[in-house]
Structures are given as C-alpha cells and as structure tokens.
C-alpha cells in the first residue's frame, strides 16, 4: 500500500516537472520579460542591467532550476498588469473558484448518482425516460448557453436569484473569503453551480446508469438474488458498490475539469474567481499569471488523480496487491 502510494507520488512529481517546463518556456520565451517590465523610453543599458539582475543571461537549465525553486515557494513573480505578486492575486481569487467548483461537483454527484441508480434499476419507467431526455439536453447544450438561459429565466423573468457576482462574502481567516455564510452569497452560488455542474451531472448519471445495467446482469447479482437477499442489499450494497470504481475515476477527473473550465461560467456570471482573472490575463498578455494558473491547474489535476488512485484501492481489494490471482 505504501509502496503503491510512493510509486504514484513519484509519477505525479514527474508530471508536475513536465508542466513546469512548459510553463517556464512560456514564461521565458513568449515575448521578452524585460520588454514587459520596462517603458518604451528605457535605455538599452538599463535594459541590459535589468536582464542581468533578473538572471536572464544565466544558462537555461539554471534558470529553470530557479523557476522551480521559486514556484515551490509559491513565488510566481509579479503580474505585469496589476504590479502585485501573482501568488497573492491567485490566493485572493482561489476561494471563489474552489467554492463554486466544489458546490458544482457536489450538486453533480448528489443529483447524478441517484438519478443514475434509478434509471439503471427501472430502465423502462416513465421517469427514467424523462431523466434521459433531460440529460441529453445537459450533454448537448454548451455551458455558456445554459448559463444565459438560466439568467434569462430565473434572474430576469422571475427575479428570484442574482445574475452576477458573488454576493456578500465573509473573511474567515487566512485570507479565505466565503460566500457560504451569507444569504446573498448562497443565492449567488445557485445559478453558477447548476450551470457548471449540469454537464458533469448528466455525465455521472449516464455513467452510473450504464454501470448499473451492466452489473445487474452479472452472476454475483443473480447469486445474491438466489440467496434471498433484500432488494436494498442487492441494489445498493452489491450493485452500487461495483459501479463505483469508474464513477470515482470520472468524478475525480471531472472535478479537475470543473475547476479548469470554470472560466466560461465565471465569465457568464462575472464570478470573481481565477477563471475570470485568467481570461483578463490572456487579454493583456500577463504571462506570470498565465504560467502560475497553468501550474496550479496541473497541480490540482495531479493531486485529484492521486487521491482517486488511493480511493480505488479503498473500494476494490483486487487492486490492493498489484493485480488479481487466477
């Protein structure tokens, strides 16, 4: 178990190094950092001095090493646009994105899994067909369209929920601002979460449904029935647990992509998160923010994958000893 965890950890570090390299190349070679820092009227001598001071004349490998060392200490340089440390900028935007993403993921799971189980158990029922039809809409409509439709319907026509922003937030220490503690914060969270989570929800529902249909046909479910176990024990104990491995994988990957692709939802709802900041950074070629964002998203993906791998082992004993025996 420990060897397994360490092996996966080493792989994760490898992935992070590759991403760091890409991020570094972007940082160093897309445009000249010196040009971004100085004004038009700076003399060539001053430029050369700054170049030397920034260490840009050192060997590339040394520069890369320094980049990694700094990144490990959460030092990603100064934003060209805001003239503030990137780490502080990200830290101030991170809570908004994480809260939105986690609430979306929770919504996707809490609604998607039960719907998937239901449609798997009663594939011919009316409700199942209705769920599937709705899920088709969720899968095929682009996120921004769903967001705009929701704003149009719920905010503009019905006037029930706010259409943009985060509402009132509370600082709970460590610079973490949360909207989960105020009414307006919670209200503001509903529409963006649904928008962001809808696609994942339908994906999870279809996945659970497919897996349930598959598992319910297996011999061990037949044998469980032949032993007279109750419907609940069979459906939720024996069947659902066997559908979980693929569901965990997909959910894990989806949490990563929810965070990464919150960009669109954040733009539609003017949500003050990292996605919105990234988009602004792209518009003004703010390379340090882009590089840091890239690293951060990669880090989240790798971390989530690592957790997913550990969860597998917790769910499926066959993975525990490095493969099944015949």
């Amino acid at each position: 178990m420990l060897a397994f965890a360490i092996r996966r950890l080493v792989q994760a570090i490898g992935v992070m190094l590759v991403v760091a390299l890409i991020s570094f190349i972007m940082f160093r070679f897309v445009g000249d950092p010196v040009n971004q820092l100085v004004g038009v009227d700076t003399s060539p001598e001053d430029r050369a001095a700054l170049r030397e001071a920034l260490g840009l004349n050192d060997p590339v490998l040394l520069q890369f090493g320094r980049f990694i060392l700094r990144a490990a200490q959460l030092d990603f340089g100064i934003s060209y646009q805001f003239k503030q440390p990137v780490a502080a900028l990200i830290a101030s935007r991170l809570p908004a994105t994480l809260e939105l993403s986690l609430v979306s993921a929770f919504f996707a799971l809490a609604v998607g899994v039960p719907m998937g189980v239901f449609t798997g158990l009663y594939p011919r029922s009316w409700a199942s067909r209705a769920f599937l039809a709705i899920s088709l809409i969720g899968v095929s409509l682009p996120t921004f369209l769903i967001g705009i439709l929701l704003i149009f319907l719920v905010s503009v026509n019905l006037g029930w929920l706010p259409s943009f922003g985060r509402g009132a937030v509370v600082d709970i220490g460590f610079g973490w601002t949360t909207g989960l503690l105020t009414t307006s914060g919670l209200q503001s969270l509903i529409l963006p979460s649904i928008t962001l989570g809808l696609f994942q929800m339908t994906l999870i529902m279809r996945l659970v449904r497919g897996e349930m249909l598959e598992v319910l046909r297996t011999d061990y479910i037949k044998f469980a029935r032949a032993r007279g176990l109750s419907r609940r024990a069979i459906n939720f104990g024996h069947a659902l647990k066997n559908t979980l491995v693929p569901v965990i994988t997909i959910t894990g990957l989806q949490v990563g992509s929810i965070i990464a692709f919150a960009i669109i939802t954040e733009t539609v709802f003017q949500w003050p998160g990292m996605g919105l900041m990234f988009l602004q950074a792209v518009q003004s070629v703010d390379i340090p923010i882009m590089a840091a964002y890239l690293l951060l998203i990669a880090f989240l993906f790798v971390t989530i994958n690592f957790i997913v791998d550990l969860l597998y082992v917790a769910v499926d004993p066959r993975i525990r000893l490095g493969g099944a025996r015949g």
Partner: peptide
C-alpha cells in the same frame, strides 16, 4: 438454495 456454473463470477469481488 442455488449454485451457479461459474464460481469465478458468482461471488461479489468487493466483499
């Protein structure tokens, strides 16, 4: 009681 053909698939692998 009922016994099925394939013992490899008759038991739930997760329990």
């Amino acid at each position: 009681g009922m016994i099925f053909q394939d013992p490899l698939t008759s038991l739930n692998p997760l329990y």
